[in-house]
Structure formats: C-alpha cells, structure tokens
C-alpha cells in the first residue's frame, strides 16, 4: 500500500538527478571541469564550505549541548529560533546579513571603521552566509545525537570526580560522535550548495566570492553545457561527502547499540 507513494518519492528525488547525468556533455566533460574558472570556483567552494563547517562545529556543538542538556529557561524558544534559518529563503538570509553587516548597517559600519574593509564582497562574507544557512542543520543533528545518549552515563562519570567539561569531552561528545559527524556532513553539503544568501551578501567575483553554485547559475545563462558539467561535479561531491560520512555514521550507531551492558533498573 505504501510502496506506490514511496516509489513516487524516490522518482521525484532521483529523476531530476538522472536527467542531469543524462544531459552531461561527457565528451568534453574533463576539459570543461578543468577550466581555470571552474577550478577557481571549486577551490573556493571547498575551502569556504570546510571553514564554515569548522565554524559551525565550534559554535554549534556547544549550542546543541546547551539545548540538549542545560537547565535553560526558554529552551524550546531558543530551539525554534535556531530553526528559523532552515525555513527562511536563503536570499532573505542574505538580506538579513546585509542589514547587520552591510556598510550602511550599524555593526557593518563599525567594522569598516575599525578594519578599513567591509564584510560584503569578501570571502569572509561567503563563509558567514554559508554558516548562517548551514548551522541549523548541525545544531539540530548534534542536539538529537546528544539527546540520544544516556544521561545517566554522564551522571555516573560525574560521581568519579569528573568535571562537567571533562564529562562532555570524554563521555558525551564521543558518544554523540556519529551524530556529530552526520551533522557535519549535512552542514558541509549545505554550505557547498549555498547560493541565495551568498549571492545577496557576498556578491560574485571569481576566486573571491564566486562559489560553484554561483558559477553554475551564471553559466546557465551563457554556457548551459558548462553549467551541467559543474552541476554534475557538485552532485558527485555532495554524494561523496554523504556516503563517506554515512559509512562512519552506521559504524558508530552499531557501536552505540551494543553499548548497554547491564539489564534492568529499579527506581
């Protein structure tokens, strides 16, 4: 009964990708992908997405921990706020970033006064735009992973004299590692695909702010075959990232499932 809609869902997800692969100009794919402009965009995309992912991990994991564990008033409100960028059109995110960090915005004006350069049109702007849209993916994935670990293990570790920070480092985070890896993979993939906020906030300049999605969008107007070749490259990259991370994730999950040694529990 469920097989028909399930198959339909699969077709909806995969058919466009199949069409993309089918439209790929295989003959000169190599030369198209190796063009300096494409390589520039690829290098920029990979580095900015990697930096954004690290940034997301640095601030997102602590936020996820707070959401999952801390005694925090208004926690569900904070969680709802975290998810806003998920449902926000990325272009709106770009506008919001401009309103905060643009040269006419109070914060942006101050930054420009201090450092002499504005944030928009810099690679930093690309990273910020990617971080803005990718962070919720990481936070939600990691919060779920931390929430899924056994809090009593942390309590048991605390009785051995371990500080809260030590418990987080040695017990909570390793236990949530598979979820963190999955979150980081999602985060990276999302950052890699970021388009709207980047275009709005960072502009589009080769080597500085023109990431793969921007290059694809531009090429679509002038050289559709190049756009298809680049899209295929992006697709392969994203799938590779997800496959690698998924392999680890599954391994980690099996480990976690084996982890409960003793049986029942009385109040």
């Amino acid at each position: 009964m469920l097989l028909v809609p399930a198959a339909l869902a699969l077709v909806l997800l995969l058919a466009p990708l199949v069409a993309l692969v089918a439209a790929t100009p295989w003959g000169d794919l190599g030369s198209r992908v190796l063009e300096p402009a494409v390589l520039d965009a690829l290098r920029l995309s990979l580095t900015t997405a990697a930096v954004s992912t690290v940034l997301c991990l640095l601030v997102g994991v602590p936020l996820a921990w707070v959401l999952a564990r801390a005694d925090l008033r208004g926690r569900s409100l904070v969680r709802a706020l975290v998810t806003v960028p998920l449902v926000l059109p990325p272009v709106v995110g770009g506008v919001a970033l401009l309103l905060l960090l643009g040269r006419r915005a109070p914060v942006g004006r101050q930054l420009e006064a201090w450092f002499g350069v504005g944030v928009p049109f810099t690679t930093l702007a690309v990273v910020l735009a990617q971080t803005f849209v990718a962070l919720p993916f990481l936070v939600l994935a990691v919060e779920g992973a931390i929430g899924g670990t056994d809090e009593r293990r942390e309590a048991a570790a605390a009785t051995l004299g371990a500080s809260r920070w030590y418990v987080v480092r040695r017990v909570t985070l390793p236990a949530a590692a598979p979820g963190i890896a999955a979150g980081a993979a999602l985060c990276f993939a999302r950052a890699l695909g970021e388009f709207g906020a980047t275009l709005t906030f960072a502009g589009s300049f080769p080597g500085t702010t023109r990431t793969m999605p921007l290059a694809v969008h531009l090429a679509l107007d002038t050289d559709p075959d190049a756009a298809v070749a680049m899209s295929l490259l992006l697709l392969v990259l994203s799938v590779a990232v997800l496959l690698v991370m998924r392999g680890r994730w599954m391994g980690g999950l099996t480990g976690a499932r084996d982890a409960a040694p003793a049986g029942g529990r009385s109040p």
Binding site: A156, S163, R164, P174
Partner: peptide, 21 residues
C-alpha cells in the same frame, strides 16, 4: 555538593561504563 566534588566511589545498578573506552 555536586557529585563530582563528593569524592565518593559509586557503582550504580546499571554500571554505566563509558562505552567507547
């Protein structure tokens, strides 16, 4: 006093070792 500063030797019923260590 929080558990980590009580300096007690505690073994809970479910043991609850750190699984990956």
């Amino acid at each position: 006093v929080p558990p980590e500063r009580r300096r007690l030797g505690v073994l809970l019923q479910d043991v609850l070792l750190v699984p990956h260590l």
